[in-house]
Nucleic acid binder design. Structure first.
Length: 625
DNA sequence: CTTAGGG
DNA sequence: CCCTAAG
């Protein structure tokens, strides 16, 4: 029937290209996959610039943080904040042995990449300034609690990439090439040059990864399952796409899912970003390349390779004493990102993982903080001179922090999904076969059957929020506690791999392919014989309850292909051969259920199944057994 | 969330 | 497998 219908409609079905699927195409059109991430970054740049410029508009040179200039955006943030401000409960974080912390991100332009040990970075961070280089470190704005820090430090190769704000006092216009300046400075500091010269995909330099613990398995379970099940949320999926990922894998989806439930969909935010980009307002123009330019900004590269340059300049008004403060923000640090991927993960998957994390982070809203001599300047009303920022001397000690915007969606928490570690053994993947089949001799294929290796290649993204102590380091209660703090001063992203499994992580974009084993096929056939072809959910529950990687849609699809396979000649079949016996049953069941649509589904159907099915088969003309 | 189908 | 429209 399925095929008949298909044939009947085939010619017609393709005649409706006009069927509005606008949402999809239009969205893709508007939101370019490749530039979205840049847009987010650019948005950040725009924000910085806006702050700078809006302040420059005042009589005082550099009255930072005029939130009014953000209008709607800020309001939205506040709104969201209030909404979730009451969801702050601590949640235990899953246990894992190693973590990689990426708490800064840089956009090298000349192949120089600063690489700083986490522990070191931590120190630097607390100082807010990298004394040796004189560079201004863009602090993450929150202190890492001992727990996480410790974890990170245990990594042999964990690194944190320092992002620096290049600053300089502009005397007459020209600023030194940021790239060169930065490059040299970088070498002066306690940084390690990675020396990679590719002009693209530099993001891969920003990480390190470590073998994950087998305990990761514990991340799964109902929680993950639920998350995964809910991945159909079109908004989040679209969000993922919009952020540059057409096809988020299970892990990524998990993240989005998490975010959805925890943060809500910040559509407005994205909207803001795009609006800004198109805004004719010359005070802040974000180029499509992600660069930022402004009339008052010095002529610094707006964009270079994959890096993003933020030209941050504050010009004093006429009443100023002619003192200009020019800052070139070449790169910035992002809040900590905890990343864990199997050592077998590919660079490509890691890139994507980092990309995901960064995108999510930026999309979550951020704000800027100003540090002078490592001290946070909270009073936005103060002028730079009042704060001492105007003095060249202090410029050296000027720092900026990027913090999860408190004014932003307060990142409610995922308290409902504690992600409490669970004994891995209880989560071990079981054969997809139904209990009935378990008694049967395992098919040799099953041994190597991917079906028994669940989600090994998947990276699960889990959003963590760290307890933040505004400014100081109040010892965190439990390093691993997932703190849904409404204030959300800190946020960390953790990418957790579910399982170890070499290869194919490359295809992270798409779920790894897991051919059905004969055992699974049999289980499927068995279930369909009894339940029919319209109750995939039941089929799933009955025969694949424990096979998390087999969704009812998968089963439905498999059945579809099975019917097809059974309908073609053996020579045309590919892949692991399915016993003819099973294929016969497939056709039988197919024929049977085609004749009994909706009828006695479930109950007694099995009783006369064979007879009925034979009848069905007989009725199914053209089908040979 | 499920189904049902096209891609 | 993915993606969606529908229910």
């Amino acid at each position: 029937m399925v095929f008949k219908r298909k044939l009947d409609c085939v010619s017609v079905g393709f005649d409706y290209p006009n069927i509005p699927k606008a949402p999809r195409s239009s969205r893709r059109k508007i939101i370019n996959k490749r530039t979205d991430a840049m847009d987010l970054l650019a948005s950040l740049a725009g924000k910085l610039l806006e702050e700078c410029e809006s302040s420059s508009a005042s009589s005082n040179a550099f009255e930072v943080n005029n939130h009014e200039s953000f209008g709607k955006e800020i309001k939205q943030e506040d709104h969201l904040k209030s909404e979730s401000s009451d969801q702050g409960n601590s949640v235990s974080r899953p246990t894992y042995e190693k973590t990689c912390v990426v708490n800064s991100f840089s956009f090298p332009d000349d192949g120089i990449l600063e690489r700083t040990p986490v522990s070191e970075t931590k120190n630097v961070k607390s100082e807010g300034v990298a004394e040796e280089t004189g560079d201004v470190i863009v602090n993450t704005g929150f202190e890492r609690d001992g727990g996480l820090g410790a974890d990170a430090c245990n990594l042999e190769d964990a690194t944190a990439l320092g992002v620096q704000f290049q600053k300089s006092v502009c005397v007459d216009g020209d600023l030194k090439s940021p790239s060169r300046v930065n490059g040299s400075l970088a070498r002066q500091g306690n940084h390690t040059k990675l020396g990679r010269d590719d002009d693209d995909d530099d993001d891969e330099k920003l990480y390190s990864y470590h073998k994950f613990s087998s305990k990761f398995k514990s991340y799964r379970s109902p929680t993950i399952r639920r998350i995964r099940k809910s991945l159909s949320s079109k908004y989040w999926k679209q969000m993922a796409k919009d952020l540059g990922h057409y096809r988020a894998d299970a892990g990524v989806k998990a993240l989005y899912r998490k975010r959805k439930s925890c943060y809500g969909y910040n559509a407005w935010q994205r909207e803001t970003i795009y609006k800004r980009r198109r805004s004719p307002d010359r005070s802040s123009v974000v180029t499509s390349e992600g660069g930022l330019s402004s009339g008052s900004v010095s002529k610094l590269p707006e964009k270079r390779d994959s890096g993003i340059y933020l030209s941050y300049l504050s010009c004093c008004g006429p009443h100023s004493k002619g003192f200009h403060v020019k800052l070139s923000i070449k790169s910035f640090r992002i809040p900590e990102l905890f990343i864990e991927v199997p050592e077998t993960a590919t660079v490509g998957s890691l890139k994507r993982t980092v990309m995901e994390a960064v995108s999510v982070l930026l999309s979550g809203g951020i704000r800027v903080g100003v540090l002078v001599h490592g001290k946070k300047i909270r009073d936005d009303k103060k002028t730079l001179s009042q704060t001492g920022i105007s003095s060249e001397e202090n410029l050296t000690n000027l720092g900026f922090t990027l913090e999860p915007g408190p004014s932003k969606a307060p990142l409610p928490l995922c308290s409902q999904d504690p992600l409490v570690p669970i004994d891995p053994t209880n989560l071990s993947e079981r054969s997809a076969a139904s209990p009935t089949l378990d008694t049967e001799t395992p098919h040799p294929d099953d041994v190597a059957n991917p079906g028994n290796i669940v989600d090994n290649n998947h990276l699960e993204l889990v959003l963590y929020q760290k307890e933040i102590t505004v400014d100081e380091e109040k010892p965190s209660s439990d390093p691993r506690a997932l703190v849904p703090l409404p204030s959300l001063e800190a946020e960390a992203l953790a990418i957790v791999p579910l399982n170890q499994k070499p290869k194919r992580t490359e295809l992270a974009q798409r779920r790894t392919r897991r051919p059905f084993s004969v055992t699974e096929v049999e289980a499927l056939v068995q279930a369909v014989e009894e339940l029919g072809t319209g109750r995939w959910r039941d089929v799933k529950l009955r025969a694949f309850e424990d096979a998390d990687h087999r969704t009812y849609v998968d089963l439905k699809d498999k059945w579809k292909t099975l019917v097809h396979t059974a309908s073609i000649s053996p020579q045309q079949r590919r892949g692991e051969p399915v016993p003819q016996e099973l294929l016969d049953r497939v056709l039988r069941a197919y024929g049977y259920w085609s004749q009994h649509q909706g009828k006695h589904q479930g109950r007694g159907a099995a009783a006369h199944k064979d007879l009925d099915m034979n009848i069905g088969r007989a009725l199914e003309s053209g089908v040979s057994v």
